[in-house]
Each structure stands twice: as structure tokens, then as C-alpha cells.
Design a protein around this nucleic acid. Structure first.
Length: 472
RNA sequence: GGCCCGUUGGUGAAGUGGUUGAACACACAUGCCUUUCACGCAUGCAUUCAUGGGUUCAAAUCCCGUACGGGUCACCA
């Protein structure tokens, strides 16, 4: 059977770079093998539901060019794909485990547990549920059930021995069974816990490879114990290293770390984001770094996933984005940047705007940056810095150069870049000045700053009227 | 605190006992090009692989300890 993987986010309406990266790995493992990629919504925490989150997830994956083979909107034969719609299934399996004697009803109130926990905290001893309810007699249980007492279902964990789990990336991971708590499978509100729902669904949906963040590694033995209890075959585990922020901490919304949508809205192309992210914790066998989704599918190899955490570095993302922007056709590029331009261009021609944007095509790192680059064409307040003022007074040829520019530009009948470039040559000839002294004075005079796009373009875009005005 | 995982340059990383004098890419620096800046191109950038010890003719690569970093111990996912 070919690989089946799943992306299983909570519907919080927020997609982390780290989550996305995991989704990419999941997608690639499935597709590399010609298998299926499923989306399952893990909404067992009723308090965290967010309206529209499912659309948001679909939208994100779609932008990233990852097609969902089975999910809430495109059901396959193993649905439903939203956990809250499957609670009967979990209940059934939890009860089956109780019948098999591998799980039990627990009537301990949350407050009781809380007290026990506090007591242990004070005594500085690790707290673990003592399993007292596993000793309840059949009659006691029926009595409590009849009285409508709230309960949870807990799994009986072995008290001795060692559990070993094999992970593709990290190898064998062993954990002493005695540190494993009798974990809750079914909560008192009837919803399953994450761990339980995960195992049930992964099995029922025939998931072959479970790919998730390294933070779950230590919990994997618990999962395996559940598979064992049911007599099911466990999937292949692939734990991937975490993605850290530049401060060395786990990425989080709280730290203000960028989410996919933040980046997208800033003007990063999804293809560039995907390309960058896949290289965080994975490396190809060759030196090639720029990959289309198809190339990634072809070349992805789980054996090349690294063990150590990766730090997210926006500089490199910018480099990728810059590369991808350059790969766009002029037409695509214009369509892409135009929405990011926030300056008022209502009194400009479309031709002018397009020319302006096109000039910056191979300078641009991300969409919003266009506003930083293009400022000189919208600012009528020319502020010449002290250094530049000094420069203007540093050579006696400068006033003549400026004067000549002004005269020659005023003579121009056609205002276009070719003619303007020609004017520069004329000024050079007439004054005998070249290089910096030829270019900088007019640059500074008309824009206030010493750098910008090609000079003829700059002069052209600022416009005849303003240029002549500023040269006087 | 117990347990689990990790540690190659500012960043992503290659490397799985001997052509590694540690690739490649980003960033950075310098130079070239463009009669200017940027773009582009070229060059430079770890005498060393957290650290101490061990195994070996030979270790970034294997073993042990230490330090540091992170994760995890919920009726959260």
C-alpha cells in the first residue's frame, strides 16, 4: 500500500510556520510515494474553536500548492474528517477497551485531582494519578453510572518494563513504563483526548506515516501502548526537528513570530515560503536549493531529515522570495506587486505606475517593500542631508553641471528615458565632467538621496516639471 | 526536579572512521562591472566541528562523563 499521511491541525485560524513545515513534510512523504494526503480537523477542545478556520486551512494549503485528497470538503471513504463529528466512534472504542479490561471508568473529580496535584507540588514529588478507580467493583461502577456521576475513561498503563518505539529520524526511543500515567482517553464531556482521537483516527483512516514535531517524541510510547492494546499495527513514526525563532525559542504567536498569513500578506510568495521551509530540517542530496513542488516530491527523502532544531532566518527567506519574484513574468509581477503599493497614484497614468513597479522587479525582496523603495517618487519634500549638502559644495563644477542639466532637459520635446539618457551625454560633453560628479548632483537635487534606480528612469518618473523646479 | 532529544561559522547546512587543507547557500566584507548607488559577477570569511576523557595507525564521525540549549510530565492539542 502506498503512503497515506495526514495534516491534523486544530481549527484556530492561525497557521504557524512550524505547522506549515510539518504539513509540507507530510505532503511530500505521501506524494513521493504516490500516496494520499488527508486533512483532519482536530477540534476536540471545544473552547478553542474559531469560526471559518477550516476555510482558512484549505486556503493556506491551496496557496501552497498542496492538494488535499481527503478531508472535510472532499471526503473519502473514511470520514467524517472532523473529530467533533466522530465522538461516537471514540466512545465506542474507549468502551471496547474497558470491556477488554485495558481501560477503566474513573470518577475522580477534577477538583480532587487538582488537590492531589497541589499536595504533590508542595511535597516536591512528581504527581501521577494513582489509579484508585481501577479498583472499583463492577457494582460500584454501575451504581455511580446510574447516579449520573461524571466520569472519564483512563487507559491502564503497565507499571514495569520498558517501551521502545522506533522513529525514522531519531532511532529507538525507550521510556520506562512506570513514568507513564494512566492517561485519559475520553473526557467527561464525552470528547476524546488528543492522544486517543489521534490513534483511533490514524488507524481507521489507514495512515501509514505519522509525521509530527519533535515535542511529541517522548509521548510516542503512550501511543504505541494504545495500538498494542487494540492489537493494531502502529504506523511509521517520523519526528521532525522543531523550528526556532531567532531568539532560540520555540516559534509562537505570543512572541509575535510570523505566521504563514503574515508572510503572505507582507508579499512573500507561497512557493518561496514552501521552498524555504522545506530546507529547515531537511536537506537535499545535491547543492541545488531552488525547488518547485514537483521537484520536491521527486527528491524528498525522509532519511535526510536532521535531528537538530533549525532557526528561522527571514534573510534567507527574503533571498528565496527575491529569486521567485524574479522568475515571474513582467505581467505576473505587476499583478503581484500592484496591491502592495500604498501610495496614492490616482493622478498618475497606468503606464507611469507600471514603469515604476517594473524598475524595481529585481530589487524587491517582498511585496510590501515596494513602498520603501519607491518613496522618492512620492515625496515632494526634498530633504538634503548635511553630508549631501557638503558634497554639493565640494566641487566647483557642480553648479555648472546642474545648470546644464536644467537647460538641456528644458529643451527636450519628448519626455522619455532615451532622450533623457541622451541629455546626460550632452551634459557630460558640454561640461567635461564625468562619473560621480556627473551623476550625484542631479540625483541629490531631484530626490534628496544619493541612490535610486537608473538615473534616466529616475528623472523620467519624477517628471519634467518637478525636475526642472528642483534643479533651480 | 524526573524523563526524552539535541549541540559543525552570525544563519540554513554537507559530512555516517582515512582525496575534508570541513562542501554548498544566506548574511557580512572587499574588489570588478555599470561613466554614480543598487542589481549582477568575483574573492574572502570555522587551523576546527560545545567541552573533557577514552577506543583506533587514523575521529566532526564510535564510547563515556560534563556543560549548555530545547522538549515533555493536563479532562490542551
Amino acid at each position: 500500500m502506498s503512503a497515506r499521511t495526514r495534516f491534523a491541525p486544530s481549527p484556530t485560524g492561525f497557521m504557524h510556520i512550524g505547522n506549515l513545515r510539518t504539513a509540507i513534510f507530510e505532503y511530500l512523504v505521501a506524494k513521493h510515494d504516490g500516496g494520499e494526503f488527508l486533512l483532519r480537523i482536530e477540534d476536540t477542545d471545544q473552547n478553542r474553536k474559531v469560526e471559518g478556520a477550516i476555510d482558512f486551512i484549505y486556503n493556506t494549503l491551496d496557496l501552497c500548492n498542496m492538494k488535499i485528497d481527503e478531508g472535510p470538503k472532499t471526503p473519502g471513504e473514511y470520514g467524517p474528517y472532523i473529530q467533533s463529528e466522530r465522538i461516537n466512534i471514540y466512545k465506542e472504542y474507549a468502551e471496547k477497551l474497558v470491556e477488554m479490561g485495558k481501560a477503566y471508568y474513573c470518577f475522580c473529580a477534577e477538583e480532587t485531582l487538582e488537590e492531589m496535584r497541589e499536595y504533590c507540588d508542595r511535597k516536591k514529588i512528581p504527581f501521577m494519578y494513582d489509579g484508585r478507580c481501577s479498583h472499583l467493583t463492577k457494582e460500584e461502577i454501575e451504581e455511580k453510572l446510574k447516579n449520573g456521576e461524571k466520569y472519564v475513561i483512563r487507559q491502564k498503563m503497565p507499571k514495569t518494563g520498558v517501551s521502545v518505539v522506533h522513529d525514522v529520524v531519531y532511532g529507538d526511543v525507550r521510556v520506562e513504563n512506570q513514568v507513564l500515567e494512566d492517561q485519559i482517553l475520553l473526557k467527561s464531556d464525552g470528547y476524546p483526548t488528543y492522544n486517543f482521537a489521534n490513534v483511533i483516527d490514524d488507524h481507521l483512516m489507514h495512515i501509514t506515516h505519522v509525521i509530527r514535531g519533535n515535542e511529541y517524541l517522548a509521548q510516542t510510547p503512550k501511543y504505541n501502548l494504545l495500538y498494542e492494546a487494540f492489537g493494531w499495527e502502529a504506523p511509521t513514526y517520523i519526528h521532525v526537528p522543531m523550528v526556532l525563532g531567532s531568539d532560540g525559542n520555540k516559534l509562537s504567536k505570543r512572541n509575535g513570530d510570523a505566521s504563514f498569513m503574515d508572510l503572505y500578506n507582507e508579499g512573500y510568495l507561497p512557493s518561496a515560503i514552501v521552498n524555504y521551509l522545506v530546507l529547515l530540517g531537511w536537506s537535499p542530496a545535491t547543492n541545488e536549493e531552488v525547488y518547485s513542488m514537483d521537484d520536491l516530491i521527486k527528491n524528498f527523502d525522509v532519511n535526510r531529515i536532521s535531528k537538530s532544531p533549525a532557526t528561522y532566518d527571514i534573510k534567507k527567506l527574503q533571498w528565496f522570495n527575491h529569486k521567485y519574484i524574479n522568475m515571474l513574468s513582467d505581467e505576473e509581477y505587476l499583478k503581484f506587486v500592484r496591491p502592495y503599493l500604498t501610495y496614492d497614484v490616482s493622478n498618475k497614468t497606468e503606464e507611469w505606475v507600471n514603469k515604476l513597479l517594473t524598475i524595481y522587479k529585481d530589487h524587491l525582496s517582498y511585496g510590501k517593500e515596494i513602498n520603501d523603495l519607491v518613496g522618492i517618487f512620492f515625496n515632494d519634500d526634498i530633504n538634503i542631508s548635511k553630508e549631501n549638502e557638503e558634497f554639493l559644495n565640494s566641487d566647483e563644477s557642480i553648479p555648472l553641471v546642474i545648470k546644464t542639466y536644467k537647460e538641456e532637459l528644458a529643451k527636450l520635446d519628448d519626455w522619455n528615458t532615451e532622450k533623457i539618457a541622451n541629455v546626460i551625454s550632452i551634459v557630460k560633453e558640454k561640461t567635461g565632467v564625468k562619473g560621480k560628479l556627473l551623476y550625484m548632483p542631479i540625483r541629490i537635487k531631484i530626490s534628496g538621496i544619493e541612490h535610486g534606480p537608473e538615473l534616466p528612469d529616475e528623472i523620467y518618473l519624477i517628471g519634467r516639471e518637478k525636475v526642472l523646479e528642483r534643479l533651480s
